[in-house]
Simulated assay, not measured.
Amino acid sequence: MDGLSSLDSLQALSALLSPPDEDDDDGDCTFATAAARKGPGHIGPKKSESKATTSAYMKNNSKNIWSEEEVAEGAQFDDITDPRPQPEYDIVLKQRVGTEDIFLGMTRKDPSSMCCECMVVKIKLPGTKVAEVILDVKEKFLDLRTPKYKLGLHLPHPVHSQEGKAQFISEKEELEVTLPMNRPLDCINLA
Rank of each mutant, 00 (worst) to 15 (best):
T146C: 05
L142K: 01
K47C: 08
S18P: 00
K140A: 03
E117S: 07
P83C: 05
Y89E: 04
P156H: 07
K51C: 10
D143P: 03
K46M: 15
L153M: 07
K59R: 12
T146W: 06
P111W: 09
L185K: 08
K109C: 03
S18T: 04
K148Y: 06
N60Y: 04
K51V: 15
K63M: 11
A34D: 09
N182A: 12
L104G: 01
I169V: 13
K138N: 01
L16Q: 06
I91E: 03
E70N: 07
L135M: 11
K46I: 02
E139Y: 07
E100H: 10
L7E: 15
R108F: 04
A191H: 10
V159N: 01
D25K: 14
G127W: 06
P184K: 09
D25P: 15
S18K: 05
M114D: 15
Y57R: 07
Y149E: 02
A32V: 10
A15Y: 07
I91D: 04
I80V: 14
C187G: 13
I134Q: 15
M114E: 15
T54W: 06
S9G: 02
E69W: 06
A15M: 10
P147H: 05
A35G: 05
G164R: 05
M114K: 15
G3M: 14
P111I: 08
Q86G: 03
Q11V: 05
V137L: 09
V71A: 09
K165A: 10
T107I: 05
E163L: 01
H157Q: 11
D143Y: 14
I102K: 09
S55G: 06
D143R: 14
E163H: 01
S161Q: 03
S5Q: 02
I134W: 07
P85L: 02
D143W: 13
C115P: 02
Y149R: 06
E117H: 03
I123R: 07
A166D: 08
Q76E: 14
E68P: 02
I91L: 13
N61H: 13
D26N: 13
V137W: 01
T33I: 02
M181H: 01
S113G: 12
K129Q: 09
G152Y: 04
G44N: 03
Q86A: 09
R37V: 04
D82M: 01
T178A: 05
R96C: 05
T53Q: 11
D136I: 12
Q86N: 11
D25S: 11
P85R: 08
P19S: 14
A56W: 06
E69K: 14
G39A: 07
P147C: 03
K140P: 00
L93I: 01
A191I: 12
I91Y: 02
V120H: 03
H160L: 04
L190Q: 11
S62L: 13
L10M: 08
H42D: 10
G127L: 05
V92E: 12
C29T: 09
V130W: 00
H42A: 13
N182K: 15
S48N: 06
E171F: 06
P19V: 01
G98C: 09
P40K: 12
C29F: 10
K63V: 02
A36F: 12
L17M: 10
A36V: 06
K94R: 15
A15Q: 12
I188V: 14
K172P: 01
V71C: 08
T30P: 00
